[in-house]
Amino acid sequence: MVYSAVTIGLQNPKSATNVASILRAAGCFGVSSVFYTGQRFGYAKEFNADTKSFHRVIPTIGVERLDTVIPQGAVVVGVELVEGAIPLPEFTHPDNAYYLFGPEDGSLAPDLVRRCDAVVYIPTFNSLNLAATANILLYDRLAKGQYDRSDAFIRQSRDNNNGLRLD
C-alpha cells in the first residue's frame, strides 16, 4: 500500500533553517503541504537549507491556528515527547495523516494535543531538533509502507553527481 496524503503542521517554528530542512524532507517523502503558525518563521524566511527549492513546489502556508486547517479525512497525529505517547517504532501510520509538531523551544499547545487522534514520540536519550524529528517521522512512515525498490527509482532520486553502482 502506498500512503496517499501527508500534511505537516508546525506550531510557531523558531528557526527558518529547521523549516527549510523540513521542506527538503517534505519533498523527499511526498508531503503535500506545510502549515505553520506564529511570526518567528515569517520574519526569518530565508529557506537557506532548502537547497532543492521545495518551498516553490510544496505550499507553505501561514495560518492562525493549526486545528482550523485539518485536511478532510486526515488523522491528526501529534509528535511530542509527552507522557503516555506511543513510541514511534510501535506506531502504524494512517493513510491520510496530518502531523503536528511543536516549536523548537517548547511543546505542542495542550489544546492541540487534545485535538490529536494519536500522539507519538521518538525514543531518544535527549530531545531532537524540529528538522531531525520531522525527518525521522517521515522516514519511518516510508519504511513501514510500500515503496519503489527499483534501480530506476534510485537513479531518479539521487543527486546528479552520484552515479555509483554495486556490481
Rank of each mutant, 00 (worst) to 15 (best):
R141G: 01
N126W: 00
I8K: 06
G145Y: 06
T7A: 15
D140E: 15
G27Y: 06
Q72D: 10
R149E: 04
F125G: 03
Y139M: 13
T17F: 12
L112V: 04
N48C: 08
A74N: 04
R40P: 00
S157M: 11
A118Q: 07
A5N: 14
V63S: 05
D67V: 12
D105E: 01
G73R: 10
E90D: 15
Y99P: 01
I61G: 03
V2F: 10
I122K: 02
K45Q: 13
F54R: 15
Q72R: 14
K144C: 03
Y36Q: 01
L88R: 14
A109N: 05
A97P: 00
L130G: 02
R115S: 08
N18C: 09
S15F: 08
C116V: 05
N96E: 10
N162V: 06
A109R: 07
F41Q: 08
D95P: 02
S32N: 10
V31N: 03
V113M: 14
Y99C: 01
T133N: 03
Y139G: 13
L166N: 10
T60I: 14
I70K: 10
G84F: 00
T51I: 11
D105K: 05
A5D: 05
Q11T: 00
T17W: 13
N135K: 05
I8D: 01
D159V: 07
E80C: 00
S127R: 07
A143K: 15
N161E: 06
T60K: 10
A5I: 05
E80R: 03
E80F: 00
G30C: 02
Y3P: 00
G163P: 00
T17K: 14
G73P: 01
F35Y: 14
R165W: 02
S33I: 07
G62W: 04
Y36A: 01
Y147K: 11
A5M: 09
T92D: 09
A134H: 04
N96R: 15
G78M: 09
F91T: 14
V113N: 04
Q11A: 07
P103Q: 09
F125T: 08
T7N: 02
A132N: 08
A143E: 12
A85Y: 00
Y98I: 02
F125Y: 03
F41A: 11
E104Y: 06
Q156I: 11
Q39S: 13
K52W: 08
E83Y: 02
L66E: 05
L100E: 03
V119L: 02
L88C: 12
T37V: 11
Q146H: 13
V19Y: 11
N135M: 08
S32L: 11
V119Y: 00
Q156C: 14
H55V: 09
S53R: 14
R114H: 09
S107N: 07
R115D: 04
F54P: 00
G106I: 09
H55I: 08
A49M: 14
L88Y: 09
A20D: 09
N18K: 12
D95T: 12
G102P: 00
L66Y: 05
A20T: 11
D148N: 11
T68R: 07
P94G: 10
V2L: 12
S53I: 07
N160S: 12
I22G: 04
Y147G: 11
V69F: 06
G145A: 15
V113K: 14
G145F: 12
V69G: 06
D140M: 13
D151L: 15
F153P: 00
T68S: 02
G102I: 05
G78D: 08
A132E: 03
S32Q: 15
T17G: 15
L130K: 05
